[in-house]
């Protein structure tokens, strides 16, 4: 799946896409925070939150397979990042793999890390699948992120595609001349291509600046920002917050 079509569900009519983008962002943060602050070992509550997010994905009309595929890359990263917990965290040894002792606390933390990552990632995938990047940038503005940050994000997003296109074109041209046969040659080729792309990016930045000046730019990008937050969206966010909050709290009360 190309990164260019991450937001393919943004045009699908659903209760999720009907929500204001700012509230979708906040909802994602609420779910991620809820998962992150669950008591260690609160498996029923973790399963509840994960189940809630899967329900939200279904409401957003994102097929389960699509959701899981999009989470796969980051989840594999989390897996590798947290596998050391299995044997580094002190505790009672519960299993041995080759010469490595797996402890009960290690398993607990490893499982929690995966479970929390799954829940937070699923929420994040729902957000980026149902919200275009311009909407996310607008949402961040509404949430009072500094203007310089949101402007830089918007420009970077736009030109990421231009730079990736140029990179692909240069690589294609090089491959058509049989460049890069062999790992070492491919590495050298990559360095040359990246250098060429950076040079072109610099030249393009000057041209873009001229284009901005030609349309009256005088140092600040003024946004079209208008809030889409309505009472219904606020109520739904509040409901989500209550549910997540109750689940998280119950993990501490139900010991």
């Amino acid at each position: 799946m190309s990164f260019r079509h991450l937001d393919q569900f943004a045009q699908v009519s659903s209760p999720i896409t009907a929500l204001a983008p700012a509230l979708r962002v906040l909802g994602t943060v609420v779910v991620a925070l809820g998962a992150a602050t669950l008591r260690l070992g609160a498996w029923p509550q973790l399963a509840t939150l994960a189940g809630l997010v899967l329900v939200l994905a279904a409401v957003a009309r994102i097929p389960l397979r699509t959701l899981l595929l999009r989470m796969l890359g980051p989840l594999v990263f989390v897996l590798f990042a947290s596998v050391a917990l299995l044997f580094l965290v002190p505790g009672e040894v519960v299993a041995r793999v080759w010469w490595i002792d797996l402890t009960d606390n290690g398993l607990l933390r490893f499982g929690s890390a995966l479970g929390r990552a799954f829940t937070a990632l699923a929420a994040a995938v729902i957000l980026v699948s149902t919200t275009t990047f311009p909407e996310i940038v607008q949402a961040l503005r509404e949430l009072r992120l500094p203007h310089a940050v949101t402007t830089a994000l918007g420009l970077a997003y736009r030109f990421l595609y231009v730079i990736v296109d140029e990179l692909e074109r240069l690589q294609r041209a090089a491959r058509s001349r049989n460049a890069g046969a062999g790992a070492a040659k491919r590495r050298r080729l990559l360095v040359s291509v990246v250098a060429a792309v950076l040079r072109r990016a610099l030249v393009r930045s000057e041209r873009t600046h001229r284009a901005m000046l030609a349309r009256g730019f005088h140092g600040e990008i003024i946004s079209l920002h208008r809030s889409r937050v309505d009472a219904r969206s606020i109520m739904l966010l509040a409901l989500l917050g209550l549910v997540v909050g109750a689940v998280t709290l119950s993990s501490y009360l139900a010991r």
């Binding site: 275009t132 990047f133 311009p134 940038v137 918007g154 420009l155 997003y157 736009r158 030109f159 231009v162 393009r204 041209r207 873009t208 001229r210 284009a211 901005m212 349309r215 730019f217 990008i221 003024i222 946004s223 079209l224």
Partner: peptide, 15 residues
Amino acid sequence: DDQLFLPSLLEDVAF
């Protein structure tokens, strides 16, 4: 591509 530098067309044209 030098002239379209914002995340959406609407923002670019309103610039």
